[in-house]
Amino acid sequence: MTHQSGFQPPRIAAWLVNLFTSNDHAESIAGDLLEEFSVVESKSGIGSARRWYWRQSAKTVVCLVGTGFLIAPWSIVGALIGGCVLLWFGSSLPERAIIGFLDLRRHHVMPQHSRLDIYVFWLNTIILIGRLLFGLLIGCVVAIVAKEQEMLATITLGFLYGPVNAAVLMTLIGGRLWADYGWRMLPHLMISTVGCPLMIVVGGVIVRATRMAILRRRLSPCG
């Protein structure tokens, strides 16, 4: 009934579907899509098959996102609340840790006045990297707690965190902060509203991909 195609389906689409499917159905859905992709490819050519695959993948992801909330609402809500609490209380931790570390060293390495700009630049950069890593860590924790709904939980948290941060920062920027610092606030604004939410989602992707790899190893005949 099926023709075994030499062509492979779009990797990104297949990867996206894998991120959102439950462990129970991951193999079956991937296999079903591949089987139909081969049939469409043999009938209508590789272009049509790739378009069909992308369309099916997009619809499947939308559907799985929609039903994910219904399947495990409490684990998602629990993970989201935990994530929000961690972000709320821990968002200043990277700054505190870095400044605390530098304070400890201050007695030994005091920046010279002529190099103060460079010192402030590197301090800012390290703080921004620290925030991104903190976002990644929170994403991983939320994904672990959300069990099979890693992507849904981290994407929702990212979508909540970005606009809330943007609103807070816009309020501050509208006031004195913008007058004092101007465009130098821009990297902080970008990291807080786009970078951190993105890293939260990346955390979800890492946990999901790791779980999928473990599952594949368990299911493989050699494993």
Binding site: S28, V61, I71
Partner: peptide, 12 residues
């Protein structure tokens, strides 16, 4: 229909 819709319904 998408394969995702079929599996979501079968799950339910």
């Amino acid at each position: 229909v998408s394969i995702g819709a079929v599996y979501a319904t079968l799950d339910r």
